[in-house]
Simulated assay, not measured.
Amino acid sequence: MMNRRHTLLGFATAALMALAPVAQAAEPLSVVATTGMIADAVRQVGGDEVSVKALMGPGVDPHAYRQTRSDIVAMTRADLVLWHGLYLEAQMEDFFHDLERKRDVVAVAEALPKDALRTHDDYADKYDPHVWMDPELWQQVVGSVQVALTEARPEAAATFAANAAAHLQDLDRLTDYGKLLLEQVPAENRVLVTAHDAFGYFGQGYGFEVMGIQGISTQSEAGLNRIGELVDTLVNRNVGAVFVETSVADRNMKALIEGAAAKGHAVKIGGELYSDAMGADGTYEGTYIGMLDHNFTTIAAALGADVPAGGMDGKLGAGH
């Protein structure tokens, strides 16, 4: 009798549980980020708590980018919109200032202390926005992403904190790898010539003199005088390698190489660097760490250092 009563009670309990409403897991926080670098930080910190869309994919120049109709729809529907700031998305600033009156919008690099930012003679009253080129500085942007996500979803604060701490450890390792590798470049070779002035923070952090054909923004024009000056520098300082960028056309760099050749000095392309955008989606180079691992390893190899095959963890070019 007792066993039968327990059996009936078990059936009744099971029936009640089947009828009771099931608590639904919260939908992921919908985040739109302008650049791939910010989107990667959101994925690292947010984990399963977020879904993120990057507006600017591989090879896209953020200085010139304008929002599309589909971008506007995505941003107006998102729970949170994260943009870089520091005049990186120059063509979209007015839109973001208008959107922030209606949506949760955060410029994640604007919180950086101004004494940590570079100024530039050709970029009056503005700062160099390319802070992702120094992973130590980028850690503070990751912190801004963590704060924004936490404010948008406070119940996931512990998850965001744990994920951010793990990612910051990875960024420390990346910083150490870059320093160890780039210290092997002979002092006389530590001259980095690129398509535009996007590597200033890299130069500060790793002891390189950096020269760009164009200024901080790709919207600045590269005049014949600037190319002529750089040709003379290449010849006089015996610079043997220059670098193209994935998000900037290489026509000015070709003019630079041809100009040096006309003066009897051979210059090679040392490699293609990621400047304002990461690598292809789904690849190692399509992550922030993979992007900088590629840059560090490519620069060091071209300028005279011995580099490990595949970069920091053997992942470069591995398609993951």
Rank of each mutant, 00 (worst) to 15 (best):
157 A>V: 09
27 E>T: 15
260 A>R: 03
12 A>G: 12
155 E>K: 12
160 F>E: 07
15 A>V: 15
99 L>W: 08
107 A>E: 02
290 G>Y: 09
15 A>F: 12
234 L>I: 13
124 A>F: 06
150 T>C: 03
208 F>R: 09
212 G>Q: 11
222 A>L: 09
160 F>T: 09
259 G>R: 00
4 R>V: 12
158 A>S: 13
191 V>C: 05
69 R>T: 09
67 Q>I: 14
231 V>T: 08
44 Q>R: 15
241 A>R: 13
24 Q>L: 06
93 E>G: 09
249 A>S: 12
270 G>K: 05
41 A>S: 15
41 A>R: 11
313 D>I: 09
316 L>M: 03
268 K>L: 12
196 H>C: 07
219 Q>S: 13
243 F>V: 12
46 G>V: 06
310 G>M: 07
230 L>N: 02
176 D>V: 15
152 A>I: 04
169 Q>K: 15
84 H>D: 04
238 N>Q: 15
51 S>D: 14
239 V>Y: 03
53 K>E: 11
294 H>N: 14
298 T>M: 09
16 L>D: 03
201 Y>F: 13
33 A>I: 07
48 D>T: 14
203 G>L: 07
163 N>G: 05
90 A>R: 13
269 I>L: 13
179 K>Q: 13
207 G>T: 12
175 T>Q: 14
59 G>H: 10
123 Y>Q: 01
170 D>H: 12
90 A>T: 11
169 Q>S: 13
182 L>D: 02
82 L>H: 05
109 A>T: 11
155 E>G: 03
88 L>H: 03
158 A>P: 02
180 L>M: 15
123 Y>P: 00
103 R>G: 01
98 D>F: 08
194 T>C: 10
296 F>C: 06
141 V>Y: 05
231 V>Q: 02
264 G>F: 04
152 A>F: 05
95 F>R: 00
149 L>Q: 03
290 G>H: 07
287 T>C: 03
7 T>F: 12
247 S>D: 08
201 Y>P: 04
207 G>F: 09
240 G>N: 13
316 L>V: 07
133 M>E: 10
44 Q>T: 01
33 A>G: 10
167 H>N: 10
223 G>H: 06
74 A>N: 08
185 V>T: 07
299 I>Q: 00
295 N>M: 09
68 T>P: 04
57 G>I: 05
293 D>E: 07
36 G>D: 10
68 T>W: 01
174 L>G: 13
149 L>V: 03
38 I>S: 04
145 V>R: 02
93 E>F: 05
3 N>P: 00
108 V>C: 01
170 D>F: 06
55 L>K: 08
185 V>D: 01
5 R>N: 08
259 G>L: 04
222 A>K: 05
25 A>R: 01
99 L>P: 07
314 G>P: 05
133 M>R: 10
254 K>I: 08
